[in-house]
Design a protein around this nucleic acid. Structure first.
Lengths: 382, 382
DNA sequence: CTGTTAGCGCTTTCAG
DNA sequence: CTGAAAGCGCTAACAG
């Protein structure tokens, strides 16, 4: 589906915002100005004629208080326009904010486009305590300080690589529980792992057993430079993304010198571009099978094959990784390794919750399951 | 693409976590226990032989300090294993946490499945100040307390309906800047709007002008009960979702008694289900056109048409809404209203940033652009 | 059941 | 350039 044209936009005059309202807001930004608008629990207590601690109890419900006193406090609060304790102060006092930091490897943009990441995020959110929220942070190298300054009680890394070492060190010293989903092993970071290496070997073995010998791969981004590039030994050596490396090395257990292209991202468009490079060559050089490191990449490869007039699996075998449900792929049933993406997130969410409660936690490892679809077949005899 | 089997999982013994480490963590959970591990800025200052304020400057960089003093402080910190100020304390003192709360209407799960929501989230994240994060919160009716207790400086509502009135009230009193993307108008909440009503009328008019008179709609969820249901007047009356209502009423400007089904979510599967109900009837009762309130729903309708052997646009016209790029739709070029989803997010992000800086802000309104594709045509003569 | 007392850990005037 | 003092707003012991 192609779309044309860019929608325009218009700024309209606000009819609901009085200037006064806006000035109030800005006045609030002058730190420590005499701000009459905001009243504190102490004010409420005074007005209700009780002590601060009693007023606190009236709101938090922790501890016992007579109905009449509570009513008096609540009434005073109402009159002062006070609506409950300031979360910032509470979090300092209690040493708890209720926030779990989720550190994304990529720009939010890319993470959101990856169905596996989304599934994991969904899993995490399912397991967080009801009042808790997920604070999305990115670790774009530059982002370290944001990790160090952000308010959260526990951290979940969506894949964590070496450049996070310092942040991890700091978190560890602060006794902040940490969980990494498919990250490199790190001391003090609980690991939620996937058998990327094994699974990749399994599916490569399937391709091998079908009889393919001229095989190429399309990998997930391998390093910091997210651009379409050939998988050279240099690139492999400098790679930082554990997942991509594991999947590559797993496949190389079967095809020892497996090469191909590293995609700039896990999207079908990037898979398309990479596949074109692999397929748009002389017939006798063209691979008879493509091992893609994600289903999105595989879908791109399928499209590229179509565009070159190649039929799958007759002329080309394509296998993926993930087991993503991809809209519009109804004509193909992709051969792939199905991973429990949501479960990974749930396990991570459960782990941080438990660790915050002081319980002990063990590492968790998930395994993928091979799904043989209709995109894989023996190579055609030439 | 169908997938079979559920991957298994295994719990393995941790080899990297010593029991000691885990006990440290749990020890930390006993509030106010003598926790020697965590040292404070005051400790560092004492050790370095400087005052707390000087130590603070050494870390924050605000204010002037001699190189030698700074080094001394940093060295002391290093020795104590102190790695920078506690964000919680800082946020209390400064009255700023750097966090922007994003309140999702739905479970995180559903929000993540909707491309328009994701685009908006991406837009927001682009505009937040570098160190800032997005705190994802859900407002599942029950979730009000979480909004009230969470730590954030500004709030962005992804559509906000009446049941948030109380939370909004509280935020307003706390002088927390608020922005609503496509929400109902609320006093003190800056609005980032989309011309849902107008746009919907526009595309309905297109359908009318093509000659269609037997037309049905598939709406986004209309109320709290997210289930496939006929669009009855009762349902419309009780509807809470502004976007769905606006789009429905816009279309009804053209087809005054437009009916159909309310989907349980914006997904192609839900669109499929709804479309089947509409299409799997006697020929003379079958609508000649379907107006879907989202592209995902429209895609489902296309699939349903296919499954019934109807050809689009020959036997059925399908129009959508959003202008989503949907993977695998290459065979169709959907007629739809293209909305600037990422821009909406950016506008919201920019607005909160400005408001936090004390600047004045106006409401913003975006407009959709009609894209005429290949899924719309005059009805076939019977 | 309620009040008193002490901070949570940090930053920010304001003097020196 | 550095130090002393004063809280940010709240909660949790511990007495009464």
């Amino acid at each position: 589906m192609r779309l044309v044209g860019r929608p325009g936009f218009t700024v309209i005059e606000s009819i609901r915002f009085s200037t006064t309202t806006l000035l109030d807001v800005s006045a609030n930004n002058q730190p420590h100005s005499a701000d009459q608008a905001r009243s504190t629990l102490a004010d409420v207590a005074k007005k209700a004629g009780v002590s601060g601690s009693t007023a606190s109890i009236a709101f938090s419900g922790v501890g016992s208080i007579s109905q009449s006193t509570r009513d008096r406090v609540l009434k005073a609060a109402e009159e002062l326009g006070y609506f409950g304790p300031d979360p910032r102060a509470r979090s300092l006092r209690q040493g708890r904010s209720g926030i779990v930091g989720v550190i994304l490897e990529d720009r939010v943009l890319y993470s959101f486009r990856d169905p596996m990441t989304l599934a994991a995020l969904d899993g995490i959110s399912q397991e967080l305590s009801p009042g808790g929220g997920m604070l999305l942070l990115t670790s774009d190298g530059e982002g370290e300080p944001s990790i160090q300054n952000a308010v959260f009680d526990a951290a979940i890394f969506m894949g964590c690589s070496v450049h996070l070492a310092r942040s991890i060190d700091i978190m560890r010293r602060r006794n902040v529980p940490m969980v990494a989903i498919e990250g490199q092993p790190f001391d003090g970071v609980l690991s939620v792992a996937l058998d990327n290496f094994e699974a990749s070997r399994t599916i490569a073995q399937l391709v091998y057993d079908l009889g393919h010998r001229r095989v190429a791969t399309i990998t997930l981004p391998l390093g910091i430079r997210r651009e379409l590039q050939p998988v050279t030994e240099e690139v492999v050596r400098d790679a930082t993304t554990a997942v991509s490396i594991d999947r590559l090395l797993g496949a190389r257990e079967v095809f020892s010198d497996l090469g191909g292209y590293a995609a700039s991202n896990s999207s079908s468009d990037d898979g398309f571009d990479a596949a074109l490079r692999l397929l748009d060559v002389a017939v006798h050089e063209r691979p008879t099978a493509i091992i893609a490191q994600s289903d999105l990449l595989a879908v791109g490869a399928l499209r590229a094959a179509e565009s070159l007039g190649l039929r799958v699996p007759h002329d080309l075998t394509v296998v993926g990784f993930d087991g993503a449900r991809i809209e519009g792929m109804s004509e193909y049933d992709l051969t792939t390794m199905v991973q429990p993406a949501t479960e990974k997130g749930r396990a991570a969410g459960r782990a941080v919750t438990q660790m915050l409660e002081g319980d002990e936690c063990n590492d968790v490892a998930f395994t993928c399951v091979l799904h043989v679809g209709t995109t894989s077949a023996p190579p055609r005899r030439c």
